[in-house]
Amino acid sequence: MTPDDLAQRLGVSLRMVREMYYTNTWPHLRLNKRTVRFTENHYEQILELSEQRSTSQVRKTTSADASAELAKLLTRKRSA
């Protein structure tokens, strides 16, 4: 499938798809200097990468929130 096909299928902009393959973040086939294509396997891998990224972002946010709560508790205990 073309980058435009992939963008429509994922519901993202063509610009995002291009950025992801230019930076080699997403798997793709480069047939020549200007031609990039994606297979069904690439599509599935991209979905898996997105799920992994979402999970790691949730964990980071949770850790940051927990750290902030711990800092608040320590500050309160020191003040008391």
Rank of each mutant, 00 (worst) to 15 (best):
S13H: 11
T62N: 14
R30S: 09
D5S: 09
L73G: 01
R15G: 04
S13Q: 09
R37V: 11
K72Y: 00
T61N: 11
N24C: 08
D4H: 14
L29C: 03
A64D: 13
L49A: 05
T25K: 06
R30Y: 06
H28F: 07
R53W: 05
S67P: 00
R30Q: 15
I46N: 04
D4P: 00
L73E: 01
A7Q: 05
R15L: 08
R15A: 07
T39Y: 03
N41K: 13
K33A: 12
V58W: 10
A80I: 09
D65S: 09
E48V: 07
Q45Y: 00
R76C: 01
M16P: 01
M20H: 08
S67K: 15
A66F: 13
V12I: 15
N24R: 15
N41Q: 13
S50R: 12
K77G: 00
M1W: 05
T23P: 00
L31F: 06
Q45C: 03
K33D: 12
E51Y: 01
T61W: 03
D4N: 14
K72G: 00
T2W: 02
N24T: 12
R53C: 01
K33S: 10
Q45H: 05
R59H: 12
L6R: 05
N32R: 13
S50T: 10
E40G: 07
R78P: 02
A64G: 00
T75I: 05
Q52E: 13
T23V: 03
D65G: 01
D65F: 10
H28A: 11
D4K: 15
R76G: 00
E44L: 14
P3E: 01
M20T: 01
R37Y: 05
M16A: 05
A71D: 11
S13P: 12
E44N: 08
L70S: 09
R30M: 11
T62L: 15
K60F: 09
F38D: 02
N32W: 09
L31D: 06
E40A: 14
S67D: 14
S54A: 08
L74A: 09
L6V: 09
N24Y: 07
H28R: 06
A71H: 07
D5F: 08
S13M: 10
E19K: 12
R59V: 14
R76D: 10
Q8E: 14
A68D: 03
T61M: 11
Y43P: 03
D5N: 09
N41W: 02
A80E: 14
Q45E: 06
N41I: 04
F38I: 07
S79G: 04
T35D: 13
M1R: 10
L49H: 03
M1Q: 08
A71F: 07
P3K: 03
E19T: 11
L47V: 04
T23E: 07
Y22H: 14
S63C: 06
R76Q: 12
N24W: 04
Q57Y: 09
K60T: 15
I46M: 03
R18D: 06
T23C: 04
R53I: 03
R30G: 02
L70N: 09
F38K: 03
E48L: 10
L14P: 10
R30F: 04
T39N: 05
K77Q: 12
K72W: 04
R18F: 05
T61K: 14
D4Y: 12
S67W: 11
K77W: 07
M1P: 14
